[in-house]
Amino acid sequence: MTEEIIIAGFGGQGVLSMGKILAYSGIMQDQEVSWMPSYGPEMRGGTANVTVIVSDERISSPILNFYDTAIILNQQSMDKFESTVKPGGLLLYDPNGITRHPERKDINIYAIEGARLAAEMGNTKIFNMIVLGAYLKLKPIVKLENVILGLKKSLPERYHKLIPMNEAALKAGMENPQEMVSA
């Protein structure tokens, strides 16, 4: 199994940390992982993306042109990455703030109302965990228990009290991906 993922959105949406938690979850179940961010003097509100690869084998290139899954959280990223999903691959996006919805017919497209659900749950910071939950429902490449272990590993000790809230967010995400049929 090799899963090649791009996660893209605004800086501050938790794009990088979602990727990090996913990568850590892979390590928890003895898989190989890589996490390659876009980096730079990202101003507030600038775009951020990260390529995550989870595999049973040694990972070659951590930088890719095409992905099994694209998780897309803003319009710029939609414009940039819709075309990079491999045929038959998955595009998961949050429709909040999206003005042009995906149009491809040869990939599986799902929406997750992450921003809305996070607001309803009273904490915008868990947005990325809701999206991650939806992704794992669609592609259960790592087990929920390993995600929790991954969270423990990637969060500093003083934040461990936040884990139950993150777990609730993951579960909320798992219940809510909506299949979209492109027009």
Partner: peptide, 10 residues
């Protein structure tokens, strides 16, 4: 280089 420096792996 920046790629090896910035990427995370096991």
């Amino acid at each position: 280089d920046g790629m090896i420096g910035q990427m995370m792996e096991k």
